[in-house]
């Protein structure tokens, strides 16, 4: 029992406020689970066991119940990730538009395969389903910025923007 992290210490005031703001839109606290996990993740990059526990406490739910939810969703990371996330579309339009070769270029530039993080912790490279930009295929997302084929001709320049 002594190892229980204190919710207020484990989550920042900003995180708690943001989660409470979400809860205000909903009929009960548990319903904010997915939003809450993402709020915590935006602040910390990923959701550690301790953060998960603190979040579960704040929402009034069991850790296992929250983890069950966390592990369902691919945008919630239960493992550490790099400073920047690259999401490479692997769905059908990008496939048709030779997304494979974009993937080759990206993995070569980063020196890691899909699902891995660069040694310097700068990038984590993940596959993602169709990003809804098929007219610009093949595409990828770096953090919250979308890049289409026309921009990705100069991959190095784009990667250089993300330290």
């Amino acid at each position: 029992m002594s190892t229980e992290p204190d919710v207020v210490n484990a989550l920042s005031v900003q995180e708690i406020d943001a989660i409470e703001a979400q809860i205000a839109h909903l009929p009960d606290r548990e319903s904010a689970a997915i939003e809450a996990l993402q709020i915590v993740q935006r602040a910390r990059g990923w959701v550690s066991d301790d953060s998960l526990h603190a979040t579960a406490q704040l929402l009034g739910m069991a850790d296992a119940a929250l983890d069950s939810i966390a592990t369902f969703y691919n945008l919630i990371y239960r493992q550490p990730v790099g400073r920047h996330i690259i999401m490479l579309c692997d769905s059908v339009s990008c496939f048709v538009m030779d997304g494979d070769s974009l993937r080759g270029r990206v993995t070569e530039a980063l020196g890691v395969e899909l699902g891995q993080t660069t040694a310097d912790g700068r990038f984590t490279l993940l596959p993602i389903v169709c990003l809804g930009a098929c007219d610009r295929a093949p595409v990828m997302l770096i953090d919250d910025q979308l890049f289409g084929a026309e921009q990705l001709t100069d991959l190095d320049a784009i990667l250089a923007r993300f330290e």
């Binding site: 009929p27 169709c130 809804g132 930009a133 007219d135």
Partner: peptide, 19 residues
């Protein structure tokens, strides 16, 4: 309550209209 939910989950591969 009665709820209205807008489905803006557009994830069907090849689809880029709702965005």
């Amino acid at each position: 309550h009665v709820y209205l939910v807008c489905n803006a989950d557009e994830m069907e591969p090849g689809t880029f209209k709702d965005r």
